[in-house]
Design a protein around this nucleic acid. Structure first.
Lengths: 97, 97
DNA sequence: TTGACATATAGATGAACATCAATATATAAT
DNA sequence: ATTATATATTGATGTTCATCTATATGTCAA
């Protein structure tokens, strides 16, 4: 089940913090570590989990690797959740540019 | 963080199965047990988790207690997720009655 | 090639949690 | 009151997983 993976990714505080900080910008691992109270290996571990779930995009520049949240994937996950567990709810417009 | 609880609830396969079966109908604990491959205490445990998160509605009728998924809460959780982790995405209309 | 820096991986440890059997509580019927 | 049925709770057990330290890998500069 795809939704199970989505849920598992969201079930950790550190992971949600990482998602939040690289939500709207590209950050290196070091920059993420600087903003969160865990060690670098721990951040790398969570980035791997996020990467495996397709929830994060990466871009190498020299020694550094930039990470950013894949907002599109977040939305598709949310939609899948709503479709599965709230099929009777009219969702209307949630946000529009 | 509210979102963390939402994620944790979603992070278990049995819980997702329970959510699915009582998504669009009221079911007793026994009826849920009959549809899922775990014991009654395990189902009760998960129903408690769901209840504490406000994700399930209950209704007592005699000896039996009917459970049904709170779809409204599911949607508000999905919206909170999108607002937090996908603020740049235009969500448009997802579904409409 | 050597050294410095950025990130990833391996292995160990502890905590959180899903599950079960056993038992308790609640409700209804006789 | 007693019995039967439905659900909840308790306590034990095993597994999953987050975290750390130590180390490996990768990249660039001198």
């Amino acid at each position: 089940m795809e939704l199970l993976d989505f849920g598992k990714v969201l079930a950790d505080e550190t992971r949600q913090k990482i998602m939040k900080v690289c939500c709207c910008q590209k950050l290196t691992v070091s920059e993420i570590v600087a903003q969160i109270d865990v060690t670098q290996p721990t951040v790398s571990h969570h980035l791997k989990v996020l990467r495996d779930a397709g929830l994060v995009l990466t871009e190498r520049r020299g020694k550094e690797i930039y990470y950013s949240l894949n907002q599109k994937k977040v939305v598709s996950g949310c939609c899948a959740l709503a479709d599965t567990f709230a099929p009777d709810m009219p969702l209307e417009i949630i946000r529009k540019e």
